[in-house]
Design a protein around this nucleic acid. Structure first.
Lengths: 232, 232
DNA sequence: CGAACAAGTCAACAAGTGTTCACTGAAAGT
DNA sequence: ACTTTCAGTGAACACTTGTTGACTTGTTCG
């Protein structure tokens, strides 16, 4: 009895040391809470890798991997759906970060498409857990999570549409058609990402194949755009 | 005790009557087995409608909805994954049926795209359960189910590529690029389908919006294809 | 210093899970 | 008519599940 109590405390200690002893910043209480929150979110992302999907993992599993007792979960989230929504925010934060960075580093328009595709796919591989979560929950999660994801993707599409607007070749596009085209690009990129997620990370040949395919598809889209005429 | 036994038999009887008394064809034994098998598959599809996904429903739930005791499940499938694979086959059988029908009824090339899109989306709405299953399991199911779905989609893409080949405007396409383009079309159609699945069936305005969007996207793709040049 | 707060613990709960077992009774085969 | 086959039954198994309540114990605040 006393023994298992100490067990719990030791886990916490370990966690503290892991994060380094430099964490002497103010608000020890809040900081610790935040760390456990992250531990729970990371645990969920970890459990999702491979076979399982978010909707099929249990609160208890998440708690266990996070090194915390099930009851403690409720100090941070009201339930699994709540955790899911937090993960959606988290995942798209990384995505928006990437897009902001990409925007601030203007690429030469010569092979802009190839570079953009490469940048994105590289990024998605580096943040695999987040993108895997999105891919898996986009259609099969609870409706709250699903809607949150869809909202974010719409937002992303609009962002891309805004980035596309200034292009000379796309002068004849009205707002709706621009979003239509951006949606096509986003869908294509997502599809490629989802394919890559299912490929062994070592299989660079297959990854390159998917890569090239996505490039070609987006070039095709731009080719079509150049010939497009929006009717008022 | 005796009471609950009778309960089970009554459920079976009810099922038999539902299906009509005309089922006097030979092989009563096999026919009944097949009916239960279907009942199990239908039960799974039914449970999937709305919030839940296949990976989050239980063998016992499926058995209960099918009006059968859990142990009986094993007379038909070795487990849930087996059922999932059967559902993949089932779902794509309907899809291939549709494509065969579409091919045998040649459309005027004038508004061929609009008609094809309309036909497909109508069909997917009429077979909602199957398409909902595919959409949900495409990325989040067990790897066996996921791979089966991916295989079928690749097959579908190849079929479409073959259908596209004879078009005069696509003369300059080599095989790889033709599949690339077909993949783009398939992705677009799937994305539209998945969007429609999340819309209230009554909301015809929203359905029409998604509809028009998909049409435009595919027209854009064909426009791009007309300008495409495959390099050897 | 002492009180209040709150992130963590343990223990228990009722329900649900997959799977195995010996069984029954109607259809199929002889 | 007699036996075999087998899709179905019910009961039991050893777990896992979400959630609650009473608790401890370090941090924060007055």
């Amino acid at each position: 009895m006393g023994c298992s109590r100490y067990n719990g405390l030791m886990r916490l200690r370990k966690k503290t040391e892991e994060s380094g002893a430099d964490a002497t910043g103010g608000g020890l209480r809040d900081e610790r809470k935040l760390r456990t929150r992250r531990a729970l979110m990371d645990a969920a992302l970890e459990l999702i890798q491979g076979e399982r999907s978010f909707s099929s993992i249990s609160l208890r599993e998440v708690a266990k991997v996070a090194g915390v007792v099930p009851a403690a979960f409720y100090r941070h989230f009201s339930g699994m759906e709540d955790l899911g929504l937090a993960l959606v925010d988290d995942s798209f934060r990384t995505l928006h970060t990437m897009m902001r960075e990409a925007r601030s580093a203007p690429l030469p328009p010569s092979n802009l498409i190839a570079n953009s595709v490469a940048t994105f796919l590289k990024y998605s591989q580096d943040h695999r857990p987040h993108f895997e979560f999105i891919a898996k929950e986009r259609y099969s999660g609870s409706s709250a999570v699903r809607l949150a994801i869809r909202r974010e993707i719409r937002l992303w599409t609009s962002e891309l549409a805004a980035d596309l607007a200034p292009f000379p070749k796309l002068k004849s596009f009205n707002g709706d058609d621009l979003r239509m085209m951006a949606g096509l690009v986003v869908n294509t990129v997502i599809a490629a990402t989802e394919l890559i997620l299912d490929v062994d990370t070592k299989d660079t040949a297959e990854v390159a194949r998917i890569h090239r395919n996505a490039e070609k598809q987006i070039m095709l889209i731009f080719l079509g755009a150049a010939a497009w005429k929006s009717q008022a």
